[in-house]
Amino acid sequence: MGFFDVTSKVLKSIAYPSEMVPSIDTEDDGHHHFDHETEHSGAKLGMWLFLATELLLFGGLFAAYAIYRAKYPDMFQHGSQSLNVVLGTVNTVILIFSSLTVAIAVKAIQENRIKLVKIMLWITIICAAIFAVNKYFEYSYKFNLGIFPGTDIFYSIYFAATGVHMLHVFIGMAVLGVLLRKVYKGKYSKDNYTAIEIGGLYWHLVDLIWIYLFPLLYLVG
């Protein structure tokens, strides 16, 4: 393989990020060395381990929250009351709903109902987008008031936690988008749905984190 091939391979892997999704497709590169069931349970186990790391990634933020909330109760009281509970609640509902749709999508692919899978993945991605738009309004409202990360520790935690969470929403959208594209290509069926299942697990985690962030930031002022 010469220089040209190398370059084209690198470019290809950048241009088609779907290639970057862990190799859990059956039409892999001929390096297949174990049976389907091992692959399925292995991928799920790996995903759960990855979720463990994600949880601990947020762990630092939760620990910082616990400490500074106890240290500066008034600051947290005021900060929390300044957040828009309605938008927060709407976003909670949206995320929980999108969790439902992903769960249905996983169920549907197991029954080979491809059309339902497509609808559910579409709804999930749209929900994620609405969530992002709401967050955009929330952020810009705060910026207009002159509130930024660093204004005080509460807002730092608010922006850091929701920001890192937002990043996960975007990653989740990208993952679901790739899966959806592959569904359209007919890559998945009731015999091959591992990718959708573990993509779904990731999306549920995004929901799980929000389930904690919402009351901690918006409600318990």
Partner: peptide, 8 residues
């Protein structure tokens, strides 16, 4: 969170 983890 428990409900999501257990069922979804």
């Amino acid at each position: 969170a428990g409900v999501v983890a257990l069922h979804f």
